[in-house]
Amino acid sequence: MTLIDTHAHIYDSQFDEDRDKMLEAAEKQQISQIWMPNCAKETVDGLMALDDQYPDRCLPMMGLHPAYVTDTFEEELAAAEDQLNRNAFMAVGEIGLDFYWDMTFVDQQFVAFETQLRWAAEQKLPVSMHTRSGHDRNAFAEAADLIEKLALPGLTGIFHCFVGTLDEANRAIELGFKLGIGGVSTFKNGGLDKVLPHVGLDHLVLETDAPYLAPVPYRGKRNEPAFIRLIAQRVADLQHIHIDDVARHTTANALSLLPALYTNLLPNN
Score class of each variant (00 low, 15 high):
244 D>M: 11
102 D>T: 07
129 M>V: 15
54 Y>P: 11
57 R>Y: 04
11 Y>P: 04
60 P>S: 08
193 D>H: 13
194 K>I: 05
78 A>S: 15
159 F>M: 11
251 T>W: 00
206 L>Y: 11
174 E>K: 15
44 V>C: 10
174 E>V: 01
109 Q>C: 13
95 I>V: 10
156 T>R: 06
171 R>D: 13
2 T>A: 06
2 T>R: 13
10 I>W: 03
190 G>Q: 04
38 N>R: 13
224 E>G: 00
240 H>S: 04
80 A>D: 02
262 Y>S: 05
231 I>A: 05
45 D>C: 11
21 K>L: 15
38 N>M: 15
108 Q>L: 12
264 N>L: 12
9 H>F: 12
202 D>L: 11
268 N>M: 15
85 N>I: 07
241 I>D: 03
116 Q>S: 05
139 A>D: 10
65 H>P: 00
168 E>T: 02
205 V>D: 00
153 P>I: 13
248 R>G: 03
163 V>P: 00
222 R>G: 01
252 A>E: 02
97 L>M: 09
152 L>Q: 12
91 A>S: 03
101 W>V: 01
167 D>P: 02
186 T>S: 08
251 T>H: 05
155 L>E: 05
76 E>T: 09
6 T>Y: 05
131 T>G: 01
76 E>N: 08
231 I>W: 01
86 R>M: 06
188 K>Y: 07
218 Y>H: 14
49 A>G: 09
267 P>I: 00
98 D>L: 09
17 E>L: 07
242 H>K: 10
2 T>V: 08
56 D>T: 12
65 H>E: 04
68 Y>F: 14
19 R>G: 00
122 E>H: 09
95 I>T: 01
182 G>I: 06
197 P>W: 04
144 A>F: 14
26 A>C: 07
67 A>I: 05
171 R>G: 07
29 Q>K: 14
111 V>A: 07
207 E>C: 04
256 S>D: 03
57 R>W: 09
114 E>F: 02
210 A>Y: 06
174 E>R: 07
263 T>F: 08
173 I>F: 07
78 A>G: 10
153 P>F: 15
160 H>K: 14
129 M>R: 08
57 R>C: 10
252 A>T: 11
80 A>I: 12
118 R>L: 08
212 Y>R: 00
226 A>E: 12
